[in-house]
Design a protein around this nucleic acid. Sequence first.
DNA 1: CGGTTTTATGAAAACATTTGCAATACTATT
DNA 2: AATAGTATTGCAAATGTTTTCATAAAACCG
Lengths: 341, 341
Amino acid sequence: MALKQSGKADIVDVARAAKVSASTVSRCFNHPELVNPATRKKIERAIAKLGYIRNRAAQAMHGKRSGTIGLIVPTINHAIFAEVVQSFSDSVEQAGFTILMTSHGYDLDREYDVLRKLLEHRVDGIALIGLAHSEKTYTLIEQQEVPCVAIWNHDAASRVSCVGAENFAAGRMAAEHIAGLGHRRVGMIFPQTDGNDRAQGRLDGAWAVLDEIGVEVPEAWQMESPYSIAQAKEAVAELLSSADVPTALICGNDVIAQGAVYACLKLGVRVPEDLSVVGIGNFKGSLEMEPGLTTVHIPAQDIGRIAGEQMVAAVAAETSETVRVRCDLDLIVRETTRGFA
Amino acid sequence: MALKQSGKADIVDVARAAKVSASTVSRCFNHPELVNPATRKKIERAIAKLGYIRNRAAQAMHGKRSGTIGLIVPTINHAIFAEVVQSFSDSVEQAGFTILMTSHGYDLDREYDVLRKLLEHRVDGIALIGLAHSEKTYTLIEQQEVPCVAIWNHDAASRVSCVGAENFAAGRMAAEHIAGLGHRRVGMIFPQTDGNDRAQGRLDGAWAVLDEIGVEVPEAWQMESPYSIAQAKEAVAELLSSADVPTALICGNDVIAQGAVYACLKLGVRVPEDLSVVGIGNFKGSLEMEPGLTTVHIPAQDIGRIAGEQMVAAVAAETSETVRVRCDLDLIVRETTRGFA
DNA sequence: CGGTTTTATGAAAACATTTGCAATACTATT
DNA sequence: AATAGTATTGCAAATGTTTTCATAAAACCG
């Protein structure tokens, strides 16, 4: 009986090589204190020799944890998600979990499909971005009783646990800053709000402020732009080329704001002298750009980390109470806004 | 015998509910053409009613595919990886796989550990970034005979399949452009090259050109900066504040280049009149920034997609021949470089 | 209508592991 | 030295699914 060479060794091969039973090898991994140090050494040697790697799938069959956390994001290809995903993943990896990640490209039906897929893999928990999900998605999560945390938004009435900031408040903050500086001719440029509760919340928050103080925004100054510097730059350039131009611009996020500032640079519109620009997010790069972007800081790193901690706690606890953590926002005034007399 | 309500239904529960055997239910998933449409309907109804979700772990035990691809990245929190990861992941998801993703923070020992972990989960394939990995890592991959593709670098002598560009060539291209413009007073700013073969290759390529034409670079003009706009900005600002200043700057990547341009904007150094800046990567944002960044385009999206296709082909084929795909680079001249008389 | 194919289904073995229970060997106590 | 207790190990059952093989029912054909 020849030794198997390539990575096909299983637990009984190891057992044979170490001249013990499979149970003992198993115990060696899961309850090492129960096995004699001498035996353990033999087994470890056999494992190394055969290049044995235990099979998590077989463990998972015993109702044991799979050791994976499912993470569903709209896309990773955005600075902001990259940051939150990174800190979330660091946080859960520290507890020994691995991330199973999928993206759905802002399509809520696809979100449901990938969720099912993650559940097939018996993830120990599910993390989602935002709180806008289809009814099917929510029902499935509840029915499967899998620990779940929504990252990015806070809502006191959320259907699942959540860790994040209030987008409405973020929108308010940006608008209040602009209004407080005396601006009354205000433009807005936001991403599409369908299936994107983050953008929707921010937009509503901004409107709330403007309505309060009776500022009207002409149609032409209400712009929509995807999450893309290029497209935001283009949209804003068009606005700035028209005869009637606002004195301030509220942007749905920092990427759009960055595009707006570039449009100004290109057209020779001075920021902030001619146009004040405020973003939301405080992404990497917003600090360093010239001029430094005034923005509402969303603590992406904290959110990711806390969400991760919350996730492992929920998985460990087996209890399924809904936890909601609100992370604070900060207005960061840099060089792209200034008072309007 | 009460129906189980919550997600604990297994295949025999479904079988019972549909009054068939477990085998038939299984077939219904895996070889639907073999089961009578009427029976299939009954089964589907039972599945829906019980909220059954099949257990991938149990499937994986049968030597079947796990349906997951392991992806190991240094970090996702960088524009450039985000882009390549996104397109890789789209590409393999299209073929029905899910990504198991982990990061190691540029620590090759940790890379080995997470690789083991992915193998425990019986991933069907492994994707890595770059070709610089520890001996242990390579041995493990070979020994386990798991399909593997290295993303980002091309090397004709690579130990595993690879899809990417030649970083040496990228460095050459950037340097040739600068040299071709007549610059002889050249500074360089690159990331640390330990355990980062991408940066190393680019740096070597740039040096090759400079050596050929006999350009010497003073110590003070050879800078190191992490992948951070802020830190690059700072480093370059310091350089520009000294008495002796180069006329051109070769940057190891676009993020560093962006920091360099910002440093110039801040200090009133005109780009490109006073200083030419060239980057490598052509990240999102390099086109739109003002002035537009001259850079070497690395087709991240293509690389990710092709790597994904290569991965699923390798998993399907069972054959383990090493495939190497070289993706072409392009010099993109924008507004940050110009001739030096 | 009897034989032959085809189609549809079930029974049971197999997959790699964990774990409860039982058995054995060893140590301490009296 | 006998007893009780403890430390260590093995056996066998269990986990949820797939698959091979066998069987039964239906369809076809002359």
